[in-house]
């Protein structure tokens, strides 16, 4: 006992998995696309939100004016 041990565990392969290996996992586990499965927007810190603004019926990307308006309101 005693002495400092600061490393806890080696977890999660340190990101060394290749795309090919991930594709193999997808194949073996028969993972399906997520499209259409999500019932509600995700919550939490690590979510990916796709920003779509609608004007009339046409989705348009945010303009500089929109961005500056957002900044003002925040």
């Amino acid at each position: 006992m005693g002495g400092l041990v600061t490393a806890h565990y080696i977890i999660g392969s340190n990101g060394e998995l290749t795309r090919e290996k991930l594709d193999k996992i997808i194949e073996v586990l028969d993972l399906r696309d997520a499209a259409g499965k999500l019932l509600q927007p995700p919550v939490g810190d690590n979510c990916n939100y796709q920003l779509v603004l609608e004007k009339g019926r046409q989705p348009v990307p945010p303009t500089k004016a929109d961005k500056s308006k957002d900044n003002e309101s925040s």
Binding site: I26, L29, L31, R32, A35, L38
Partner: peptide, 8 residues
């Protein structure tokens, strides 16, 4: 692998 298949 799930994220690679688009599960966000």
């Amino acid at each position: 692998a799930l994220r690679r298949k688009g599960h966000t």
